[in-house]
Amino acid sequence: MVIEFLIKLAQGLGIGALALATGLLFGGIGRKIIARIQRRYGPPFTQNYIDLFKLFSKGSVSHGWAFDLGLVAGFAPMLAALMFLPIGPFTLLPSDSSLIMIVYLMMMAYLGMAMGVLASGNPNSAIGMSRALMLMAGYEVPFAAVIFSVYLFSKTGYLTQIVAQQAGGFMNWNIVKMPLGFLAIEIALQGMLGEKPFDQAIAPAEIASGPMVELGGKYLGFGMIQHSVGLFLETGIVVDLFLGGAPNFWIFIAKQFVLYFIVILVDAILPRLRIHESTSFFWKLPLFLGILQAVIVIIQGGVLNV
């Protein structure tokens, strides 16, 4: 019992480290890609590791225990959510790998982060937070529509089972069966990751990097971890939902990277929208796609027998 628990604990920490490493690597490669698109040489792709290391070794200021608690609470639930995500063939806690659980644990992380940065008492972080929340009111709606379709289509809420249903080749993947839903979630992903044109919340020149304005040293490091793990989780969810999971870890991150690559390409060429424009953008095209997909699924498969 104890041994089992310790093994799970070690595996959990391993998954956390792996997800963090992958997320940071993606971030580094993303920086490199953007640099190449702008015809720059760009930082080494390991730059994000170095940055994180430096941040954790640098001094910082705290605005009190709510600030500290918030930053830790912005990171811990993300780590917890990882334990339920099927990563390739491996899920640490398969019996609880419910999609909604992961989504809401991520919400908890955002809530914690918001508490921390708002406790700093800087109006810039408040403006940034208000923008982040308004953006969330945008992208979560099409995201919900897509999840709705997936639930009705797969008739289950376990990510492990959703992955299992897509086994057996490309034609079984949900991206083939629900292309509109995939499109909607891919657009929503752009907003979730806060990449351009939806990076209003952290506009550096405008509101001094918004929520992060008072974060330095390890606090910024926690923010960076949260972002990287969030990146891993969000792309991972889409891979599990639409791209049929993966037989092993490497293919899994390859698929994740394809998603992230699209996001980065869009990020590199688009300017920033205004906040209310982007919120209402999500209520138009992506939501329409999501609802259309849901209607198609309902017509095809009918509703559950209750």
């Binding site: 550096p204 001094a208 990097s209 992060m212 008072e214 974060l215 330095g216 910024l220």
Partner: peptide
């Protein structure tokens, strides 16, 4: 480049 003194070296 960074936005605020808290983040900068």
């Amino acid at each position: 480049p960074m936005a605020t003194p808290r983040q900068a070296d």
